[in-house]
Amino acid sequence: MSELTTTNNGPSTWQRFAARARSVNPIYVIMILLLLGVGYLNPRFLEVNGFLAFLRRAAPIMILTAGQLYVLVSGGFDLSVGSIVTLVVIGGALMIDNDPANTWWVILVLLAGGVVVGLVNGFIVAYLKVPSLIATLGMLLVLRGAGLYWSGGAPRGYLTDNFRIFGRGNIENLPLVDKFPYAVIVLAIVGILATYLFHRMVYGRQLLALGDNPRAAKLSGVRTNRVRILAFVISAVSAVIAGILLGGFSGVNIEAGTGLELQAISAAVLGGAVLLGGSGSVPAAMAGALALELLFALLNLLGLPKPLRDAVQGLIIISAVAYAALGTRRSK
């Protein structure tokens, strides 16, 4: 460090580094600390394959969080995503009907179904002016009822191997890493697309403007209804993708998606998204989701009973948001 402090003209490298460090979203620091914590307790975790296996498990919630972020930034909530995940798992198994040849069109139908659900959510909020909390809560009940009715209330059929490969399969016999999970490839593609659309395209700016001040956005020419509806479509489609991965990872279960909507909202908020809109970042939200999963893994390794995880999660999200809220108040 001594050679750095010798340069007297202009901010030193260290000062520049410190300034940049302060602008880094704290979620990345938290994520790395958790990563080191888990790695310390279970060294296999820090090996490439151990970490990839963990990413495979975290992929569905990370994808769900990326989609949820779009709706949160627009100023709304999407509570329907958990029931979309459940419906994808249940409906996928029923439509495939144990014939692997059906898998491909079923995946297309599921994705199209996601688009429809997102359009309906968005239409109800944008045109019928129903607050999204209520609109997507209603949709949650509608989809949960539909899924249970369709399956008769118990999981039936199973997902074929060529469907499940996305959630649990690996590309085998690779150099360097030996095997690479398909889910991580899906995660990377979704993550890059979601980040690009949000941070590099006009749509992302329009969404931020809409969430920050809907009236101002409208007056400056943003087609607010379209922007809002597209956010719900992105959220619903990401839920379908998450459902396909989760169904692959853990099989058919009528509780597959229960509670995931709140976990995704918590994760996005951990990543610095502001509820009621206007601020957020896709990579940070996904890091928030990963941090939450790391936290669960850590608590598990520490031998904490499973129910206490909920308590810790509750404590963490309150503290994170309080920290952010008090921080912005002080800086004003």
Partner: peptide, 19 residues
């Protein structure tokens, strides 16, 4: 603490659930 009520009561609910 200026925490959004949605998150605050969701978090308290999780705490109660855990205990």
């Amino acid at each position: 603490l200026k925490v959004n009520p949605f998150i605050a009561t969701l978090g308290v609910g999780l705490l109660l659930k855990g205990f």
